[in-house]
Amino acid sequence: MIATLSWTANTEGDMLKYKVYWSYGDGVWTGAPFISSQDVTFPTHTVDLTGLPDGATIYFAVTAIDVALNESAKSSSVSKINKYIRRY
């Protein structure tokens, strides 16, 4: 499964990066059923995620992180459902 996420760029002057989270559970960003996260270097504010599990609903959220490593609250979440693809 591939998911392409994009969001509005932050305007703070000390931005360092974003962190994208994905999870099987909406609002669950640590521990099960949380899956993983990935950094995106500022000022890029879009990312293609690959290798996501098929056949399930995946929830996504993103945070902003400044040079002092202060991390923002999570954005509102979005979700994507990828149907299982039969290969035979």
Partner: peptide, 14 residues
């Protein structure tokens, strides 16, 4: 105080 950035907005997924 060095405040954390605002939470990003406008998140979409395709």
């Amino acid at each position: 105080p060095d405040l954390a950035p605002a939470a990003p907005t406008g998140l979409t997924v395709v």
